[in-house]
Write a protein that binds this DNA or RNA. Structure first.
Lengths: 240, 240
DNA sequence: GCCTAGGTCCCGTTG
DNA sequence: CAACGGGGCCTAGGC
């Protein structure tokens, strides 16, 4: 039978802890929440992130991000977990003795994710015609100066400035507004409107309406196609 | 020693399952990911949501939302979990015998959250002067017709139409664009520009610039203040 | 430290 | 069903 003292030691040692049992949960911070008695799992990781999971749902019902201060207390003979940081407090009060499990997890593997918006950008830089024939991205340095608002700056076949926004999901009116706001700021800076191209697998209807109003152009581009292009480019690289 | 057959039965019965052990994870779907060998916790909930947790970090490294199809297989004498839905596949392959835990969690409690944007709206409807002296929200019916884009429609002390956008966090340029897009659509519909008020605890600098350009007004309003007003309104209700 | 943008975001609500 | 916006979003990157 593991005790709170075991939990303290395990956490100090860098283990992962799970409590399983009936509890109530109170949270005060950016918002406030209350959760009555029910049986839940409480995960405490070695970085002192903490998750309260109900028996359903992808998302934890309550949590505290990594780096919080974790205290194990006893109130009325039952365990209480306090997880706090500068502005927030999470308090988990068990209403019966929970079971306690300790895990020593070694995990140093790298996590690799593909088909992100960043990958789409790499693909377009490797093969600019994905945007349109004759499209030429500006050199990296001039890209960087404009970073943060637009994904790719370039010139079209006629030498006109083009701002390209990439989306891995169907484009929304929000995406269109973001792009046309950027066009406007370039316009007032240089006195000339650049072309704007929104490259995404599709658009919502409202986005399409917004595009017509603001003369943002749509170019169909899927993450899948971009990954193909990246594979081909890589294959070519290793061949050469 | 629990077996995969036990896991199948537990899941069918509505229990929550945790596997703990070394595994690799492959995901194919909206994106693609690869995770090499490492020791992790795999939670499978009764709604067949599934979470793969590494020893650090609030977020699961891989997952599948509720309702996926879960298969427990054996490959080379070791357990494999396949969690799939129409378009996505998550495959967890253990590289050594994992431990298996089963939990029967009863949890029917209601989760209550306060200080949401919705609560801010309630507070303003209870005490419209939170927006400005003389502000009068339109009746609920005329609100509803306009729902989905703007939080509150009302009239100011001079009878002018006012659209109010509430935010519980510092207002961003995106928030300003959203509001002014709405103002524009009302303008082209009625031929007259309504006033626009963004009520939030603060604004980012870029948002402030965007507000000046588009004549969106700022009103400082915190979730905390709104909760006070709601408590007072409630207290008054129970007194009357 | 603030601020911005992405995410397999998830999730609820509405048309 | 798509679509739209909130969230204690979290997290990574820039400045």
């Amino acid at each position: 039978m593991l005790t709170l003292e075991d939990a303290r030691k395990a956490l100090a040692k860098g283990s992962v802890i799970i409590f399983a049992g009936p509890c109530t949960v109170v949270y005060e911070g950016r918002a406030t929440s209350r959760l009555g008695v029910g049986e839940r799992l409480v995960l405490i990781k070695k970085d002192r992130s903490i998750l309260v999971h109900r028996p359903t749902g992808h998302e934890p019902v309550n949590w505290q991000p990594a780096g919080s201060m974790i205290d194990f207390l006893t109130e009325n003979g039952l365990p209480v977990i306090r997880a706090s940081n500068a502005n927030e407090l999470l308090k988990i009060s068990f209403t019966a003795q929970p079971s306690l499990m300790v895990f020593d997890l070694r995990d140093t593997a790298e996590f690799e994710m593909y088909a992100s918006e960043e990958d789409m950008k790499k693909a377009v830089l490797a093969k600019p015609s994905l945007v349109e024939p004759g499209f030429k991205p500006l050199e990296e340095e001039r890209q960087v100066k404009r970073t943060g608002r637009v994904d790719i700056l370039g010139l079209d076949a006629l030498g006109r400035l083009v701002v390209v926004e990439l989306k891995r999901k169907p484009a929304t009116p929000e995406d269109v507004r973001q792009l046309s706001a950027y066009v406007e700021s370039l316009n007032s800076e240089f006195g000339r409107k650049p072309r704007a191209i929104l490259a995404a697998p599709s658009t919502t209807k409202a986005a399409r309406r917004e595009m017509e109003k603001t003369s943002v152009e749509f170019r169909c581009l899927t993450p899948r196609r971009c990954m193909q292009v990246l594979r081909e480019a890589k294959g070519l690289d290793s061949y050469l």
